[in-house]
Write a protein that binds this DNA or RNA. Structure first.
Lengths: 207, 207
DNA sequence: GCAAAAAAGTACAACGACTCTACTTAGCGA
DNA sequence: TCGCTAAGTAGAGTCGTTGTACTTTTTTGC
């Protein structure tokens, strides 16, 4: 902490040259304008042209920085992926992969929602089908890199089925925990299934 | 078998009136034209107009029958869902839910690919990113109804987390088994994880 | 320093998926 | 047979996204 260097592998590095700084600023201006407009009017009520105007750039520039309209909402997803991989690769020696994943998920994912704007943001995503779909896909896109990390740690082939399956199941967690009152308990319960196997939940006592 | 009635719950029922028959015929004509053109030229090289022309309807009619371009490729997905639910609800007494699901998946999903045109079809989907994405989402869309069926069978609440998680994990199987040389073995391995929990796969012997 | 390469941005036209509106046609039920 | 309803059509329009050709800014090699 406090060090000016020392960025985790793969995390966004601060721009060095003037050009890179301006580029980053433009990107940020676009993302900010987009988020503000989306929160104000709703995703479907905002066009790319509105965003471009608000950020004072051309529409072509928007697409130079973002792959599509949905991506405007999820800038910074790159970091989320890097942290996940790091949690597996740099776990304390002796800790199992499953435990490392559980710990990481418990430590970081529920607390992401603790930010002040986060409630509105979550609401935006949840109430916009195309954004929910995109978010789910975003997670499962990480399946390959996470499973590769797991396989590396164990010393098996990158496309080992058990590793791919575990990665996929872990990445399902955000979708499964969405909307639960107690997210932490949900995460624990899911990891229990992954650790010990699925068993029929007990029926509630008859009234 | 051989009965002229006796359709499984939720399966497509043959149209009764002349109007319904014509409607179904139009829908089929569109789906057929679309699939043929897609297989001939590739998904991205075929426009909605081409399909409409080939089926001799207007483009507006295409969208009256299908929610979007991707849906043209996966007509009949309704039946797939119904079969899955039925496999859980109408399983032999004494069989566990997990076993019923494994059996159903082993019996039906790999054999779907046994049809003659199936190879081309699979190739079309696999080689078109937007179709792969759509197919994955199609499966996970069934999560709610499958988990509801599971929860009903056990006698717990519809949104019971363990049931939702199991449903989701099972519906991940098509994505996980895609591209494997031995799909049946893959399905078995995944159900093993779901039944007994995940364990690190053993390393191959050092060379 | 300066010229030239490289990269960011712009304006504008165009394409394709999809929607909307107003209209026609065909089946159906009384 | 008379209307009602639903299917289908024509055509214009919206919106996300891409391509082209051009300008501006920053970097780089001499």
């Amino acid at each position: 902490m406090g060090s000016t260097i020392g960025y985790a592998l793969g995390m966004t590095v601060p721009p060095v040259s003037r050009r890179d700084r301006k580029k980053a600023a433009t990107r940020q201006a676009i993302a900010d304008a987009a988020l503000q407009l989306f929160l104000e009017r709703g995703y479907d009520q905002v066009g790319i042209r509105d965003i471009a105007d608000a950020a004072d750039v051309s529409t072509a520039t928007v697409f130079k920085h973002f792959s599509g309209k949905e991506a405007l909402v999820f800038d910074q997803d790159q970091d989320r992926e890097s942290e996940l991989i790091a949690a597996v690769r740099q776990r304390p020696s002796g800790q199992s992969i499953l435990d490392a994943l559980r710990q990481h998920v418990l430590d970081t994912w529920p607390s992401i929602e603790a930010h002040p704007q986060a409630a509105e943001f979550t609401n935006l995503v949840d109430s916009t089908p195309v954004l929910r779909a995109y978010a789910e896909r975003m997670w499962t896109r990480y399946t390959d890199s996470l499973s590769a990390a797991i396989a590396d740690e164990i010393g098996v082939d990158h496309d080992d089925l058990a590793c791919v399956a575990l990665a996929r199941f872990v990445l399902d967690i955000p979708a499964l925990a969405r909307g639960r009152q107690d997210r932490r308990a949900a995460v624990e319960a899911i990891f229990d299934i992954l650790t010990h196997g699925w068993e029929p939940p007990s029926k509630p006592p008859a009234p």
